[in-house]
Each structure stands twice: as structure tokens, then as C-alpha cells.
Design a protein around this nucleic acid. Sequence first.
DNA 1: GTCGGTTTTGACCATAGCGTCAAATCAAGC
DNA 2: GCTTGATTTGACGCTATGGTCAAAACCGAC
Lengths: 207, 207
Amino acid sequence: MVKTDMETPATTLAWRRRASRDARRTEIFRSLGLALRERGLASLTMQAIADRLGMTKGNLYYYFKNKQDLLYGCHLACMRLSLRALGDVRRSTEPPGTRLSQVLTRHIRAITDEVYGAVLLTDLESLTPAQRKRYVAMRDRFERGVRQIIREGIERGEFRKVDPRLAGFAILGAINWIPKWYNPKGELSSAEIADAFADFLVTALEV
Amino acid sequence: MVKTDMETPATTLAWRRRASRDARRTEIFRSLGLALRERGLASLTMQAIADRLGMTKGNLYYYFKNKQDLLYGCHLACMRLSLRALGDVRRSTEPPGTRLSQVLTRHIRAITDEVYGAVLLTDLESLTPAQRKRYVAMRDRFERGVRQIIREGIERGEFRKVDPRLAGFAILGAINWIPKWYNPKGELSSAEIADAFADFLVTALEV
DNA sequence: GTCGGTTTTGACCATAGCGTCAAATCAAGC
DNA sequence: GCTTGATTTGACGCTATGGTCAAAACCGAC
């Protein structure tokens, strides 16, 4: 049987619906991120998020069960990007320094460019225990991956002998704090910040 | 005229009143910090803060005009400690590395030991513009001080040639993120963390 | 143009949490 | 033990915000 255009996934009705729904959800994530970045946690109301998109508050509940759910979606979306960066690098044969640099750069850009990275500034307590558990599991996976690269660098003699756990906390803390001061309209582009930070943090480990 | 015990400041009625009031205010700061640390921003309600001290919510308003005011007090108290550390080190003739290490150590301990350092995790948008302005001025003073030490280290050839601004952001971000994961009942004491972090971060700059 | 499902609306409810206040309690000095 | 000012109470009002829902509008397929 021959596949016609109509049957290829990209033009299937169901497919288009789903894609459009996903796109809308992402728009909402971005709106949330912007609200957070521009006005702070204080203005993180469903109303504010909706307003920015020219939609009504009620409509948000067509896409997300409730506020927790929206927050959770943001957390997941952001973490998925960072985990993908980690995964990509796993297959690489580059030295630890290069690999770490790549992961950090992409982690930073996930946080800055996809605005919803600002969600890191909220607290996990607003999630349900189940959601928190799952998110924390992902986050731990990411942190372990980073520590693993650090450990490898130390074993190969390319990194100083630091405590991988603490070094990891320091490095990721430095990055996670970025949304607190980053201004997309400032002098430094997110790309510049990402490069500079990755460079500084990796060099901090080297020798 | 001879000063009697009754006239020495420490036993003056007004003095005692004031001291007791200040002590109470600090207790409240600590309670706020604990609520933040243990339950997250979500549980940062006046009620929760009062409960933890066995006092009523209404009573809090005898000590603080409103919630903003309380938050503001926390921010100031915490920043004052860090600024004092910076001031003390200014008079020192030690090399930049040592001085930076001292400032960072005390900054970390201000955040971890005086629990209310967790207030860093809230957002400045909950303050009035005037309060925010004043706090940000203090924070900037602190950040400039840190950058100044970094610059000096570079000039003396003791630190690598980094961008002092970005390095400062990275270093302080790593530290400010600590309340997010620090657990006073965990394996690592705050003193150990402070030393390890200061060491790691200063060495990151050296050579 | 009409039918079915999808999306959006806007009015509405419920409640958590801030902040108020008059009255009660406490404690130091005499 | 009385007086006076400092401190504390607890019940209350009010608003902001999360969340619901029935009805309307939309939109693509036929």
C-alpha cells in the first residue's frame, strides 16, 4: 500500500492537533518564564501569565490542570534539555574538560534562552510529592552526570583533586543563579555568558 | 559625678527594652529562615513564622509593620554581616587570595548559620521600590568589594586574567545557591562547607 | 452550510492569607 | 499592691488569587 501525503505524520489531523497543543503549552512556559524574570515570583499568578499571551486565565486550565502542574511542566521541560546535553556528551570521546564545557554551555543556554529556566528560582515545595520526587530524580541524574565527568577528569589527571560533590554544587549553583541577574537586553548575550561561564568554571577545575 | 551601675547603658531601662526588642526581632528572622529552609517559599506565611515561635500572628505586627518590612529586615541583617566581613578585610594587608577567602567564608557562614540567609531565595520584588533600592545599593557595594579584590589579585599576578564581573557573579552565585541544598543535619557542617567552598573558589582564580 | 470536536470565554465560587484593633495581660518601679 | 507602659491576644474584615463551569465561538471536513 502506498503512503499518501495525507497519511504521513506531519499532516495527520491528530498529529497537527497535538503539535499545536504542544506549541501552545510551550508558549505558556515562556510566558511564565518572562513573568518570573521581569516581575519576580510575586507576579507569578495565573492571571499574569495569561495576560501576557492575550488569553484568559480560564483558558490556561484547558492546558494545565492547575498551577502546580504548570510549574511542574516548566521544570521538566527545562531539565529535559539539560539531560539531553548530558546524554549527547556521553557518546563523545572528547576529554572531560571539553565535555564538561559542552554540557555547561548547553545547560546555561537552556536556562537563559528558553526563558522558563527561570523556574529554577521557584521552590520545589509548590509541587506535589510525586512531582517533586520525579523532578528531583531527574535533577539528581543530571548532577551525577556532571560529577561523573569531574571524577573522570581527576582520574585522568586533567582536573585538580577536588571533592566532586562540592565542586558540582558550586558549579551548578553558579549557573542556576544566573536567572537572578541575567538581563536579555543587557550588554552580554546569553551566548557570551554561556561561553564565559563554561570557560571559567572548567578552567577552575583544571591543572 | 560618679556613674552608678544603674546609669551604665547595660542596665538602663530603655537600653534593656531595646535590646530585648532587637533580640525578639532576630528570633523572628530566624523563624522566617527556618520556615523558608524547611518548607520553602510556599509556607512563608506570617502564620507559619509566628507558630514556630509559639506566638500569634497578630503579635508579629507589633515588631514589623508588615510582611515586606520583615523580609526587608532579613535582607538587611544578612547583608550587614557580609558587608562587615568585607570591611574587616579592607584593613588587612594579607594577599588578595587570603582576603577573598576570608570574605567568602564569612559570607557563607552568614547565610548558613544565621538561618535567615535563606531569604536570598525570595525575590526582591516583594519589597517596596525604596527598600529594594537601598538593599540593592548594599548588595552592589558588597559585589564591588569582591570584584575589587579579584582585580587586585589579577594586577598582582596572583589570579588568572578573568573578567572580574563575571567571575564575581559565578563565585557569589555558587554561594548564594547554597541555601537551596544545605541541610544543617546533613553530613557536612556549615564550617566545612564554608572552608571547602572558599578554598575551591579562590583556587579557581589562582595562577 | 452544517456537524463534531476543539478551544476560548467570562462570570462565578471558595478560601488562604495579610493586616487591624480593642481589649486583656504582663512586669517594672515605687 | 498599684500604676503605667510594653506586650500579646484572638476575633474580624478584606482582597487577591486559584480554580470551576456552562455556554459560546471557532474551525476543519464533508
